[in-house]
Design a binder for these strands. Sequence first.
DNA 1: CAATAAATTAGACAGTAGGGTAATGGATTA
DNA 2: TAATCCATTACCCTACTGTCTAATTTATTG
Lengths: 229, 229
Amino acid sequence: MVQKAAETKTKPISVIIVEDFKLTRVGLRCALNANDDINVVAEAEDAVEGLKLIEKHKPDVILMDLGLPGMNGIEAMVKCKEMMCDSKIIALTSHDRCEEVIAALSSGASAYCLKDIDPNKLADVVRDVSTGVCWIDPMVAQMTLNALPKIDNIGFLPNKSNSEGRVPLTEREFEVLKHLVSGKSNTEIAKELIVSVHTAKAHVCSILQKMCVNDRVQAAVKAVKEGMV
Amino acid sequence: MVQKAAETKTKPISVIIVEDFKLTRVGLRCALNANDDINVVAEAEDAVEGLKLIEKHKPDVILMDLGLPGMNGIEAMVKCKEMMCDSKIIALTSHDRCEEVIAALSSGASAYCLKDIDPNKLADVVRDVSTGVCWIDPMVAQMTLNALPKIDNIGFLPNKSNSEGRVPLTEREFEVLKHLVSGKSNTEIAKELIVSVHTAKAHVCSILQKMCVNDRVQAAVKAVKEGMV
DNA sequence: CAATAAATTAGACAGTAGGGTAATGGATTA
DNA sequence: TAATCCATTACCCTACTGTCTAATTTATTG
């Protein structure tokens, strides 16, 4: 496992653990910190504390237990998204109830692990998830896939209208897009990014053109539907 | 990578490749066979041939290109499931169209890889998938998660946005909301519903209040995220 | 029948959105 | 060095948004 750290000489993946059981928390920390490319930067034993730490550290990956006392893990993930947190979330639980799995994945989690996962495997999942991969435990993978809407699968001809002629957004434009999706006005976006309203408008204009839409509502809907944010 | 083969001394993971481009096929075979724990047992250049080989070899994992001539990959996966094949399927394509991704995953694929994946990573995915993991490429992960049904209706989110304090939209308002989400202006909505602009505005106003949002962008995003439309 | 809710219309008003054009400095690239 | 892209700012102008108040009609329900 540790060899992988040598392969990628970039800075380690920062991780925050939110888990109420002390022993499990220690176990997770040890298992992950044994990897040179993974660094557990903080731990919390409940969601409120966890959210504070997440806001402070802005980790690459969050290990979130779902069965937390008080605010549960799914609520915490929703709050996390509300505060425009870019961290990838791994839902960690011992349950394999279908509704819980779907609720977690549709509320912000990028991965779903059962707690009996092999520690080394978990490190792999952390790496995968940090790059944006969606990873779902074998025990619940099929039920998740079954929950996807069934699409009439005939008629798939190479319609490359999407990825081809598409102009990519710049980093700054993505930033603006996020705020736009959260419903902010140009004035609010400008205040948020500490630029003038003119700049914000310029970015929005550019976003609309690149996304081939007529107004910010269409841009927001498209961004949400295509998972750009 | 090869060390992993030593770790698991069981028999290698058998793989069948279904891909029309000869060069890609060779590339896949070489990349995978470089791993001691993975064994490419057969290759096909179209779906019909592929299905025959799959029935014959019953491989652990199938690497299925989606853009095949004749019967496409998604149809092939459906047929595969029909013949009670237990093989795990990795959908391999260069497209990132939402419908194609969802169609593939809901038609039998356990993983979705874009073709620019790192060969070593692909071997990892083959290993993961052979154990039943669901693995989705970063480029399309978010879009897939967004396609999952939104579940707020269970006890996971004991908040106000549910049946409790929420005022339900009327039928007409839902109609307006749909047009709103599609990016139409009040004028366009009015034209569509054959009412005056004043009426359309009145409905929109009412929608915003009932949905507890400040503007139509937030309404649209909320509607999409919660699967109201 | 009366009360209630929904759908419809209208006028007015402050604020916002989006398009167009143009200019500047910084960074990267050919 | 020149060319190009990006972020930034500015101004103008038209059109649209969201809220308010107010009125009419229709349907449903107690």
